[in-house]
Design a protein around this nucleic acid. Structure first.
Lengths: 219, 219
DNA sequence: ACAAAAGTGTTCGATATACACCCATGT
DNA sequence: ACATGGGTGTATATCGAACACTTTTGT
């Protein structure tokens, strides 16, 4: 019986939610894409193992991790009994891939354009998305996936791509004002022939519930 | 490296939330109380393993199970590396303990009067309570812990003992009416020198989100 | 008659939702 | 001047919270 960890790594770029996948270079499922992950060592904690694997395989550092669920079906790995502890992982597009040795196999996919995957990894991603949808509505978890400084439109697009629905700009901003979790920087962000946008940052980047209440970010 | 499952089994009786614990009869922690559970067999799924262990140790059948979290700290078991997948388990007081051979060691404790526990089981219970508090506010999970037929006051007491706060009777009942998840039986329940209470049952005992929305049951 | 829990509606404040126009910039 | 996305407020509807008295039974 072997114990593995796998990470569903999300990031956002260009208003689209992205997921990190690895092209397998060993059997089984050689050539197929899979979640980054690997076996846990004998004297290694689970969280440590995920961090190690992500660093090895993707060069990514500074990752927010949250344990998701453990997958232990008997037939899930053709090599034999492998139990995998899945993690939800979030990083900002800023500090993705410093292209370590092994990292070449890591590729970002648009959520919704995910290729056929090895093992039960599609199921794991589906579960991760459900969890992410819950968390983004009830916690300040988006601070883990947005860049340090961001515009409110970027943030709204992140919410929209995770929730898969349009939100109302004025209501979204009003809610953010009430929550008082952001602060203005005095910097503007320009990316086209239009009025520059104010850049914001989180007052507190520690993961926490919003308003210590079940709470919904709305239309 | 060994894989175990442990279950945090909740039930409710006499308006108090109860938890099922086992007195250990082996080292380590001999004589201490612990969560029911045990090692997963080589060709056994996780869910199957929990059901088997619960049946063996407690005689309990017909249990609602939901995977909670996996505990894999290196030092959590003095015998060596043991990873434990924890489950939230709910049963109605009706079909608890048919006293199987091994079941004698199983005892129900009032939540809040939990003795000192083996391993990291106290942490697991704390995590389970957080999860249960979330679920009872957003799903119809209470159908898994209430008896088949129950009074609204019994149900309210269940909510109150899980949420650890008083709820308002009229608001609680109004909300239940709006949710339309219960139906009246035509039976009355009597247990003292007072007006008899109507017995209700769930329209649908399948676990599901309430109103497919994040939703709060209130004061 | 009294004690004890069951049952039942209304009012008020807070929050959710819907919605349209002006602003600053590059070309 | 126009095209593009940035930025802003108000009115209505829905939902949450507070609150007290009558009913039915056993003793």
């Amino acid at each position: 019986m072997k114990l593995a960890v796998d990470a569903v790594v999300f990031s956002v770029n260009d208003a689209r939610l992205r997921i990190l996948l690895i092209k397998r270079k060993n059997q089984p499922f050689i050539g197929r894409y899979a979640l980054p992950g690997g076996f846990v060592e004998q004297d290694e904690g689970l969280d440590i193992a995920v961090i190690r694997e992500l660093t090895e395989e993707t060069g990514v550092k500074d990752i927010f991790l949250k344990q998701l669920k453990t997958y232990g079906d008997v037939g899930r790995d053709p090599r034999g009994r492998v139990i995998s502890v899945a993690y939800l992982a979030l990083i900002s597009w800023e500090h993705k891939l410093k292209a370590s040795s092994d990292a070449l196999r890591a590729e970002w996919f648009d959520i919704g354009k995910i290729p056929s995957l090895a093992f039960d990894h599609k199921t794991i991603i589906d579960d991760a998305l459900v969890q992410l949808r819950l968390e983004i509505q009830t916690t300040n978890i988006s601070c883990q996936i947005l860049p340090q400084k961001f515009t409110l439109t970027q943030m709204q697009h992140l919410y929209e791509s995770i929730l898969e629905r349009k939100l109302d700009k004025r209501n979204f901003r009003k809610k953010l004002r009430e929550l008082d979790i952001l602060k203005e920087t005095r910097e503007a962000f320009m990316d086209g022939a239009h009025r520059p946008a104010m850049l914001y940052e989180f007052r507190n980047k520690a993961y926490s519930d919003i308003k210590d209440k079940v709470h919904v970010m709305l239309k």
